[in-house]
Nucleic acid binder design. Structure first.
Ligand SMILES: [Mn+2]
Ligand SMILES: [Mn+2]
Ligand SMILES: [Zn+2]
Ligand SMILES: [Zn+2]
Lengths: 144, 144
DNA sequence: ACAGCAGTTTAGACAAAGTCTATATTAATG
DNA sequence: CATTAATATAGACTTTGTCTAAACTGCTGT
């Protein structure tokens, strides 16, 4: 569990509203986690969220962190980003956008949606519908 | 370890050449695994490769399967596809192409490179170079 | 107030993918 | 054939995540 400083949290009533809007009852733990996530656009692993939330006094169990992140992802409050084979990143920005992934550093950064444009679109297999398009530009550090 | 039927393997001398071409010494185990991988364009997990290779008489250890797939990926013989948070898929097709990922079934299928076109390209962060672009269209089964 | 109840949280056991280490085996070299 | 370098192996270990059964929380109706 990484030890990351808790940054400027977002106002409690605001996140409570966000949760209610999505039909999620705003429990202590969910609000805590939402305040961390939505303090800014960012990409956090479950482990990182765990580290931040348990930095202060309030303890939240591992199961609850995973449950909550899963719930938020399901309800569309956060977006799961799959680029690192060892863990999921939860993206607090649900606006359509894409990612750079630096395979050397593990760093994940945003590509604004308008920066990239798909100009043709593949035909979907029978009986399926698109759930989203993920574009990842893998980066390596230039070594010279 | 899944139990998958060993399909038509590719000729041994052919894969031995492929390995040599990339500076890989063609050991028994590596050749076995290469024959499975390159029998056709496909996406296999380490576990699946393990299941196929150990279906017959010849036993190959878990460590060797993982070492070999990692080596092949490093040398550019196969391509790692990261779409499922629980495992890596090894793609025996290294031609530039993209993927559909059915989140309901876990099925991974190809999108031919020409079917999709990026018409603008983001500026890379300082000190980095692009290693590749992965486009994944997530699919769900239409339920109606 | 308070019993009852659904929803939530929790500790800790468990599972799956993958890595690591120390040893054994194999292959190449002189 | 003897020596050495490269590989392969078993199995312990790590990490991320899931599951289960028990405890807790906060309402609801009386
Ligand atoms: Mn993994
Ligand atoms: Mn995982
Ligand atoms: Zn993002
Ligand atoms: Zn493919």
């Amino acid at each position: 569990m990484e030890n990351i400083l808790k940054t400027q949290a977002v106002a409690k009533p605001e996140v409570i509203n966000m949760l209610k809007q999505k039909g999620i009852s705003p429990t202590q733990q969910r609000v805590e986690i939402a305040q961390i996530l939505f303090s800014k656009p960012q990409h956090l692993s479950a482990d990182q969220v765990m580290g931040i939330v348990n930095n202060g006094e309030q303890r939240v169990s591992k199961a609850t962190v995973y449950n909550t992140l899963g719930l938020f992802a399901n309800k569309g409050l956060v977006r799961e980003v799959i680029v690192d084979p060892t863990k999921i990143f939860y993206d607090s920005n649900i606006q359509s956008h894409h990612h750079f992934y630096n395979v050397d550093s593990g760093e994940l950064t945003d590509i604004h949606a308008h920066t990239v444009q798909l100009n043709s679109y593949p035909e979907l297999p029978e009986g399926t519908e698109a759930d989203g398009v993920d574009i990842v530009v893998r980066l390596r550090n230039k070594k010279d």
